[in-house]
Structures are given as C-alpha cells and as structure tokens.
Write a protein that binds this DNA or RNA. Structure first.
Lengths: 183, 183
DNA sequence: AATAATATTGAACAAAGTGTTCATTAATGA
DNA sequence: TCATTAATGAACACTTTGTTCAATATTATT
C-alpha cells in the first residue's frame, strides 16, 4: 500500500476519532473531518464512500487491533485458542484495553457506539463458540447454546464499558475477577 | 394538550418508527418524516428541534410505556415496588414486550438503538437499586454494588434483545426462566 | 353559536452539507 | 529516470436544513 494512502487513511481515522469524542456523530460533517485531517474533499471520497462506511471501517480496524494484540501476547502461546483457560483470554483483552489504545476507549465510551460494541461482542461470540466446552457448567447445560454464548460475550463487553465509565481505576486483574464471578 | 398537537406528535412518532425499521437513521431526513406523517415542514419544527431530539423523546415515551404498563398490572399490586419477588418484575416486562407494543420491538431490533437500549437499561438500574436487597446473594456481596446492578440490568436488556432477534418464538415464562438462571 | 386562542399550512428563503468531476501537481516504487 | 498512482482545489448541481410569515383551520371556552 502506498505510503500516501496509508497516511491519509490514518489522518482521517484520527480526525474522526477525535471528533467522535467531542460531539455526536450525527453532527459531524465530512467538512469537519477533512478540515481536521487537513486533506482535500476529493481525497476523502476517494477513501470512503460515506461517513457510515468510515465508521464501519474504523470499528473493524479497532476490533482487529484488540484481537491481534491478544494473539501476539507471548503467554497466550502465539494463539488465542491455545489459552490454558478462558480467564486468560479475557485478561489479555483487558490488559490491552488498559495499556495500548485510547482510540478504543474513545469509541467505547462515546455515544452512538452500538456499532463498535456489536463488533466487539460478535467477535467474542465467535471465539467463545469455538471453545465452548471451556465454558460449560451446570448453568450452561440448561440453556440454549447461543443464548449462553451471547450472554458471556455481552457481559464481558458491558464489564469493559463499566470499567471505562469508571475511568479504568481498577486493575485488569480486578476487573477480570469481577467478570469471572459473574459467569 | 390540544388534540391537533397530540395527533401531529403521534403521526411524527409513527412515521419515524416506520422509517427506522426500513433504513438507517442517518439516511432518514426530516423531509422523509413529514412526507410519511403527512404534515407541513414548519409543523415538524414546531414540535421537535432536531431529528436527534425526536429520537430522544420517542425513546423516553416508549420507555415509559414499558414501565407504566408494568405498574398497572393487577398482580403487581398497583406498584412495581410491591412485587413479591424480582422475578415477577421481569416477567411483567417480558409479557408487555410480547403482547402490546411492536413499536418497542422495532426500536430494540433496529440499528442505532443504543440510545433506547440505554434508556431501558438505566431505567432498570434505578428500579433494581431501589430494591437491591432482593437481589443479594453470595455473588453480589463480593462485587461493587453498582457493578452488580449494572450487570443485572444489561443482562436483562440483552436477554430481551436475544429474544426479539429470535422472533419471540419462546414464551415470556421461558425467557424469564433463562434470565433468572443467569443471574 | 360566537369568539379568542392556538395549531397547522405552504411557500419561500439563505445557509450548509453532499457527492462528483477534472485538469494540475506531487509523491512513490521499481 | 519514469511510469504510475495519489492528492489537490476549485467548481458544480443537488439535497437537506432550519426559519419566517401571512393565511387558514381547528380547538376549547363562553
């Protein structure tokens, strides 16, 4: 990929994320974005069809960040599915949220973040489905599988959201414990 | 309140809800709404400052429907707080969702419903806080109170959402059982 | 039934935003 | 060095927004 394209794309993402943390998405205009990103109007439309697509791609990118970083953590044996137990999986994600990426925080804590929350949740659903046996207990056997999977994923997402709303005062380990007590 | 005002307000809500179930909120224009509601442009702006405020007030209204109906159910002794047990509270809401109001379904199942989900959740949080002792168990005592309250509320909302996504195939009683097993 | 108050109408309006075009310029990779 | 590709900016038609106002219709009240 051309360096120029990459830079422009990142400038747009950065400008958009900034604006998202400042005001409601419906009042952010393309003109706002290109002014902040310091690019031409035509350039914006060469990259993104509409504002909606921009949001979608930003969500996808941040979503990948979360899980890619989890995959790369040494203690996860280079692959998330090789986690010894499911509590490691969640702890890795929590650590990543705390340390690396405040773009994620902005998206998770801003209004109109349903889209990103859904990406986050649905990504987890897939992971959990693939190692569902790890999560089996008395509870889960009496419930529809997809209902239980959905429950774990959305509870985790809600936990992260709660944590962010509390300004990440607690440690990842504490939050992980809270979460594990719930499920 | 003047009959005309009431009719116009309802026509706008109805048109907007229809449109919400048809397309993304960001592509719904004020012109779409007034055409569907068959009212004049000036009339719309006499009622709502912007589209965002319209959504906000619609959410508030539907949210009140849910809880007002719960309050009015005979078996709740005319007041939600007098529920014998918390499982009745949730069952009432589930029954209401199933029977009465498909506007609620549309809002809960459409995209960009974060706002309404939040109203729903936050309303529950307040109810649960006021009778938190009912929910106490081994789990809850080891967790921050607001964390646990938030957990119950968002798990219930997620449960309702799952149910709607499954087209309400299950009975309110079944869903209530599922939910109670989780918490 | 008459009246005063109020809601709706429709047309018109400036201002702002959208999405596209294109010839020109600049940066890139090979 | 050079062919390729990306960014530019100005211009464009078009849509959407939010407001104004005089005219009209509906309402609650008496």
């Amino acid at each position: 990929m051309d360096r120029r394209q990459k830079k422009t794309r990142e400038a747009i993402f950065s400008a958009f994320t900034q604006l998202l943390s400042e005001k409601n998405i419906s009042s952010i205009t393309v003109s706002d974005i290109i002014e902040r990103a310091d690019i031409g109007r035509a350039t914006f439309y060469a990259h993104f069809e509409t504002k909606d697509f921009l949001l979608k791609e930003l969500c996808e990118e941040l979503f990948c960040h979360i899980f890619d970083s989890t995959l790369d953590t040494p203690s996860s044996h280079n692959h998330i599915f090789e986690c010894d137990a499911h509590d490691e999986l969640f702890l890795h994600i929590l650590k990543h949220v705390k340390n690396n990426d405040n773009q994620i925080l902005k998206l998770l804590s801003c209004q109109n973040n349903e889209l990103f929350l859904n990406y986050f949740k649905n990504g987890l659903v897939k992971l959990i489905e693939s190692q569902l046996n790890t999560f089996e207990n008395e509870k889960s056997k009496e419930l529809p599988k997809d209902f239980y999977t959905n429950f774990i994923a959305s509870t985790f997402v809600q936990t992260v959201k709660w944590w962010i709303d509390h300004e990440l005062n607690e440690s990842p380990e504490e939050i992980n414990e809270y979460f594990l007590k719930l499920i």
